[in-house]
Nucleic acid binder design. Structure first.
Lengths: 217, 217
DNA sequence: TCAATAGTGTCTCTTAGACAATATTGA
DNA sequence: TCAATATTGTCTAAGAGACACTATTGA
């Protein structure tokens, strides 16, 4: 008998920085289908509980990472009778940005096996069409940053301009000249210097910044 | 009783050029809900017939316009319990580009009342959240063109460089200098001059072009 | 000839990239 | 002092906008 309704899910590519490199959260599936394989975190829409698919995505992330109020953005919707063995399915893909100082918290809370995956790597293969989905999420994120947005959601509350540059480079996967980068962000109103706060070390101290309250990625 | 499954639909913002101005197809709804109101063309997913939501969109466009093989791209997915009075609904929004010489064919085939709507206008109000959806589709199209893509899908098979510029300006809603525009497209491999073909009139004749076979919008 | 549009050239200003120079700390 | 990183400055080349100029047709 044919299905009358598709299976509706939200899948999330959760990006963060580990040692200045871009990584995405993957989870080993505990149940069928694709049991034992690695996949993006995701979950099924619950119309009684969710007031939108964004809600579904936030609920899934909260349960898998214990973290709220992440930056979340829709990437695309994948749909076909074949992408999930359970039948006609439709998945709305999101990407989320996790501040790098919360990575240990996420790694700690999960009862499932997790891993931080290099999105440019080819191993391990992800289940379903999640490999393609991750590529699409990365492309969307990169386009946004290349259009001038600063990925401040990947940084902790306080950071230096060098941190911003490293986040920028990690997302784009390419280096940028220091002088050119600082010129670009010189008049950026999203960056607020914290007066008197300096990061000290065995070199010239660096000015510490924070994200402006009205920052919009 | 609560619904267990959402209503899944595909809605389409079909853009074309009418007298060098950008217009979107809207249709007067013949049935409930929102009977008598104007809305974007759309239709319900049929899992037995459609192999993806792109398929749904193509099927809807074919039935409402009689035209195949349009350029079609996904914009976003809207979802909530409130956006459709029938209950929890999810709509995948597409935009499509219709060559301007096919506009009369579309206007002819429809059994419903249709109109070509100025997407910058505020009247008439569209049903459901379709006003917002149309804005999102326009924004996505403009971003693509601003990123350098030429909206050749809006033009007939043969066209002049001035036609290309007018299509470009109609999409962006702003003027561009002729010299700057021609410099930009000077080395564009998607544009092929048709040797010896000239558009004549009471002025200097214009070279006629066509779209390269491997053109990718 | 004139009107009208096609097509090209020139000037300036902004910006990105490459790269160099200076500044300030802890050890 | 030295190593290390922060911060600023300079040179150049490419590109965009403004604007003017030339070219070619029908009437």
């Amino acid at each position: 008998m044919k299905k009358l309704f598709p299976l509706v899910t939200a899948d999330i590519a959760l990006f963060t920085l580990k040692e200045d490199k871009l990584r995405a959260l993957i989870i080993r599936r505990e149940n069928q289908p694709a049991q034992g394989e690695w996949a993006l975190p995701g979950g099924i829409l619950q119309p009684e509980a969710d007031t939108s698919l964004d809600d579904t995505a936030r609920r899934v992330l909260r349960s898998k990472t214990g973290v709220d109020t992440l930056y979340l953005e829709q990437v695309m919707t994948a749909s076909s009778p074949d992408r999930d063995p359970r039948g006609w399915s439709l998945s709305v893909l999101y990407y989320a940005l996790l501040p790098s100082d919360l990575v240990p918290a996420v790694a700690g809370i999960s009862v499932e096996a997790i891993s931080w995956f290099d999105p440019e790597a080819t191993d391990p293969q992800l289940a379903f069409d999640h490999g393609m989905l991750l590529q699409r999420a990365l492309t969307t994120l990169r386009k946004k940053v290349r259009d001038g947005a600063l990925p401040l959601h990947l940084l902790p509350e306080q950071f230096t301009l060098t941190d911003v540059q490293h986040a920028y480079e990690a997302v784009l996967g390419s280096r940028i000249d220091k002088g050119a980068f600082r010129r670009k962000i010189k008049d950026e109103p999203s960056l607020l210097a914290i007066d008197g706060e300096l990061l000290r070390g065995p070199q010239r101290p660096a000015q510490i910044y924070r994200t402006a309250d009205d920052f919009k990625f």
